[in-house]
């Protein structure tokens, strides 16, 4: 069964229809890339799937459950992990505390007022950090991390809830090319090993065609192509969108 199914999503901002009827499905263990030129509606689409925006029409189902318009924090508890285009971490905490906080939140232990938080789930947090290659930086303040490290920290926090689905908005933006491949290989490994479904948007075509199992192409709010990377790369409509009508 598909992990995530979206049917006929529509979102309108004033006169502009940002997303005009998008349907998609992500399977367990699958790496699905959502691409398209600027303004194609990727972020809007993503935010509707991630609960930040409520669709005007259409439905989103997670493991068969209708989650249309559900708030991000409820989605988080249903197993949706999220990373953002502009990284968001907790600057006043260390790297380890960031992950501990995510673990506490996912385990619904945030409303405890007495025991010391930094003694909770230490092993789990360190395990997660080791998986994303951040173990050596566990005691550094999150506010001083390099950009690529922040992306990895975000991934560790997204994994804290044992997600069934990872939503990653531009996971490699701002990283060096070598780092990008490494991070996405890591994600790919996690998807394979644990059957986590991954939906990501990406600008870097090397990353998309190198890591995705399937690619969806969005243009002016509509899906214009989908299929294997090879098929999409060969699709004339996609080439037209990316290279202009002259092609």
């Amino acid at each position: 069964m598909s992990v995530l199914v979206a049917e006929g999503l529509r979102k309108r901002f004033g006169a502009n229809e940002a997303v005009a009827g998008v349907s998609l499905a992500v399977e367990p263990g699958e790496m699905l890339a959502l691409i398209g030129p600027n303004g194609a509606g990727k972020s809007t689409c993503f935010n509707m799937l991630g609960g930040q925006l409520r669709p005007d029409e259409g439905a989103v189902r997670l493991g068969g459950q209708d989650v249309t318009g559900m708030a991000p924090r409820h989605l988080a508890h249903l197993g949706v992990g999220r990373t953002f285009q502009i990284t968001a971490s907790f600057a006043s905490m260390t790297v380890r505390e960031n992950v501990q906080t995510a673990l506490l939140a996912q385990k619904r232990q945030a409303w405890r007022f007495w025991q010391a938080a930094d003694a909770q789930h230490v092993g789990l947090a360190e395990g997660l950090l080791a998986r994303v290659g951040m173990a050596s930086q566990a005691e550094r303040p999150a506010g001083v991390l390099a950009y690529g490290d922040l992306k990895r920290l975000e991934l560790a926090m997204a994994l804290a809830g044992d997600p069934v689905l990872l939503l990653m908005d531009e996971p490699t933006a701002g990283m060096a090319p070598a780092e990008r491949a490494a991070l996405m290989a890591l994600v790919r490994g996690i998807a394979r090993d644990q059957g986590v479904a991954v939906l990501f948007t990406e600008h870097d075509m090397d990353v998309v065609f190198g890591q995705a199992d399937r690619v969806l192409v969005l243009d002016r709010g509509r899906l214009i192509a989908q299929g294997t990377p090879e098929a999409v790369r060969a699709d004339p409509r996609v080439r037209a969108v990316y290279l202009g009508t002259a092609a």
Partner: peptide, 19 residues
Amino acid sequence: APFGFALRATRDSALRAEA
């Protein structure tokens, strides 16, 4: 305690905290 961490999390990044 966890409450304080969670509270600080919402201050540092409300977006991440919700996520």
